[in-house]
């Protein structure tokens, strides 16, 4: 194993230009994938933020006793889909209306607005069917006058989310495939450049696994370095966009580490496939 590491490191020294070219190619392939990842991450974050605003508002009939309301709140809180239930008094409703809609600035009588129960749903339970089901259950209380949840808006948001998810998966797979093909070709080029060395290794009795090991290590190192470089490029791109266009979120530590390790994995797999193919051909 020590020899495999030495051979892998020597390969960088013996062909510095080819190694640099490989690492740069890997870096740019992963960078393109990383940029897509950043866009997907931020779109997802924006959609989650919008989705968090999905709520079911049940208007309470005037004169409903506080006991009935409290019992209903406890009841609704126990729904498995429900994250929180808030009682909004007419005064609070007017305050909110003044904040959100300018027309209410001249209204001073809170009694024109009904009290309501504002129900927020748990993440992953904000699809139209669930929201509709919760709204229908709310309607069964006789002191509930009307239930609203922006049906059309919830459906549109759900469609956008579905389209974004499918587009994200397809684009992600495309970018990942392109990255793997480019990285595989780059590694294959490096292996072809050392075909003579491989043939000599075989002649002197090296086993295929012995021949393969340095290439796998080399692939992993190239992938790792390419991944780090891609992460640095992505960070710079994110910084520039954040500075001049709009603030966007960057990968957290976990995703960054996963991305770099993914680069190393692609490097190893690319090398394994290329060396395996080469060893079968010669």
């Amino acid at each position: 194993m020590r020899l495999a590491w030495r051979e892998a490191l020597l390969a960088f020294k013996r062909a510095p230009m080819l190694s640099a070219l490989s690492i740069t190619t890997i870096a740019f392939s992963l960078f393109a994938f990383g940029l897509f990842g950043l866009v997907a991450l931020n779109i997802r974050k924006a959609l989650v933020e919008v989705e968090e605003r999905v709520e079911v508002r049940a208007f309470i009939v005037d004169g409903t006793t506080s006991e009935s309301t409290s019992a209903a709140i406890a009841d609704v809180r126990a729904f498995p889909e429900v994250a929180s239930v808030t009682l909004v008094t007419p005064e609070q409703a007017l305050d909110r209306a003044r904040r959100e809609l300018g027309e209410f600035n001249d209204v001073f009588d809170p009694s024109i607005l009904p009290a309501s129960l504002d129900v927020r749903l748990k993440g992953g339970m904000r699809d139209p069917a669930t929201v509709h089901a919760v709204a229908e259950r709310m309607k069964t209380y006789d002191f509930i006058d009307d239930v609203r949840y922006g049906e059309e808006w919830v459906e549109k948001l759900h469609r956008i989310r579905n389209v974004a998810t499918i587009a994200g998966i397809l684009l992600g797979l495309t970018f990942a495939t392109v990255a793997i093909v480019i990285i595989g070709s780059t590694i294959r080029m490096a292996i072809l450049a050392r075909a003579r060395e491989i043939s000599i290794m075989r002649l002197v009795g090296a086993t295929d696994s012995f021949i393969r090991s340095p290439f796998l290590i080399e692939g992993a190192l190239k992938g790792l370095l390419g991944g780090l470089l891609a992460l640095a490029f992505a960070w710079i791109a994110n910084y520039v966009i954040g500075h001049f266009v709009f603030r966007a979120d960057f990968f957290d530590i976990r995703l960054s580490v996963l991305g770099v390790l993914g680069g190393a994995l692609i490097g190893v797999l690319g090398s394994a496939l290329s060396v395996g193919r080469h060893l079968r051909e010669v």
Partner: peptide, 30 residues
């Protein structure tokens, strides 16, 4: 293959390794 040695017209030495390293290479792989 380790029981035999093969010699070619075009020598087939590794150009970026010294004479010692070329010979040592055959021993290292075993």
């Amino acid at each position: 293959r380790r029981k035999m040695g093969v010699v070619f017209q075009d020598f087939r030495l590794l150009e970026d390794r010294t004479v010692e390293e070329n010979i040592a290479f055959a021993l290292e792989v075993t």
